[in-house]
Nucleic acid binder design. Structure first.
Length: 329
DNA sequence: AATTGACGCAACCGCCCGACA
DNA sequence: GTGTCGGGCGGTTGCGTCAAT
């Protein structure tokens, strides 16, 4: 059987997070950086499992998360990447740094799965048993394997160029969300707010410098979020920057990197490519596909390119269904 | 206005893997 | 070489919201 729970269930709170808990967690991470999740509940006094803290941070509190509707552009990227990578949401998410794997997974399960099924239902030459993503064609497995091999190579490359990375990190663009950009806290829409709680917190800490939690972390508010080397420098993989990946990937994929779709719909603050922040990639896709960014055209991207060519190029990617993709192999 | 079913999302659970002693 | 631990990932569930009846 599996391992015992990461923490005893007695006294561990479950369910939705409260604003207070969020504030405590973010304050702590601002001071200490993400990582060592085991110590978070004990050090913060949060009655939460370490996993719960980590998930809350990565899926909701982490700076740079884009919420709200998926754009058509994102949707098509997800469809294609899912066809290539399968349900490896973390890997897929690394190409959409503003989205969490959980978000993508949910979006896939609630929207795209149905959409594709419907699409294939309309397809006259629909073949039995091959429609769902669960049954992965043999060729796709081979590609997966090749992806993994490639990732391993990339990891080696990265390991050999760590110093360069760290230098780049320190020179990298600071966390783009400034206090002037933040909006007033809207407590009434807390849970579903499109505002990132971290932004709220930055605003909050500014507004209430006397608060014990915020006060102690205020001096680190900017530095922690601005400087990715703080608190995360212990992990080499967390020092990677994926900021250029989506752009390069987008442009490669034929999407306009200046596409306004990249920015947010439904009233969210616009986030352009320049607003990709190191943490967004470092804390999300982590060590795997982020490695690809060192090479403008990775093997994976070459595959995509091959696929595009095989399909006659143009906007095929946009319209490709899973079944069609399966036929490629 | 009340009920009900569908939908979407946040969070949890179980398993796996790598690091380390 | 082995066991333990911490972290990550994918699948699943629970609950709130909203539209249809």
């Amino acid at each position: 059987m599996g391992r015992p729970p990461c923490c005893d269930k007695i006294g561990v709170k479950k369910g939705p997070w409260t604003p207070e808990e969020d504030i405590i967690l973010v304050s702590y991470i601002q001071e200490h950086g993400p990582g060592n999740w085991r110590a978070v509940p004990t050090n913060t006094g949060l009655l939460r499992c370490s996993k719960s803290c980590r998930l809350r941070w990565t899926n909701y509190l982490r700076p740079g998360i884009k919420r709200g509707n998926f754009t058509e552009h994102e949707e098509k990227m997800i469809i294609h990447l899912q066809a290539l990578l399968g349900n490896r949401w973390a890997a897929i998410a690394s190409y959409l740094p503003q989205r969490t794997d959980n978000d993508i997974k949910n979006f896939w399960n609630t929207h795209l799965k149905k959409k594709l099924k419907k699409q294939q239902g309309n397809d006259e030459q629909n073949q039995e048993g091959s429609s769902d993503s669960q049954s992965i064609p043999k060729g796709q497995w081979e590609r997966r394997l090749q992806t993994d091999i490639h990732m391993a190579k990339q990891a080696l490359c990265e390991a050999l160029s760590l110093d360069k990375w760290n230098t780049n990190l320190l020179d990298s663009k600071p966390f783009p969300v400034t206090l002037s950009e933040t909006k007033p806290i809207q407590t009434s829409t807390y849970a579903s707010s499109t505002e990132n709680i971290a932004r709220l917190l930055q605003n909050w800490t500014k507004k209430s410098p006397n608060s014990s939690q915020a006060g102690s972390s205020q001096s680190t508010t900017q530095t922690s979020f601005n400087n990715p080397s703080i608190g995360t420098s212990s992990s080499p993989s967390e020092g990677t920057i994926s900021a250029t990946t989506p752009e390069g990937f987008d442009s490669f994929m034929g999407f306009s990197s200046s596409n306004s779709d990249v920015s947010q719909s439904e009233g969210e603050p616009k986030v352009n490519a320049a607003n990709f922040i190191p943490e967004a990639g470092t804390l999300q896709g982590e060590s795997k596909i982020n490695l690809d960014i060192q090479m403008p055209l990775t093997l994976l991207e070459n595959w995509l390119f091959d696929d595009a060519s095989a399909q006659g190029g143009g906007g095929y990617i946009m319209d490709m269904s899973l079944g069609e993709n399966a036929d490629l192999f």
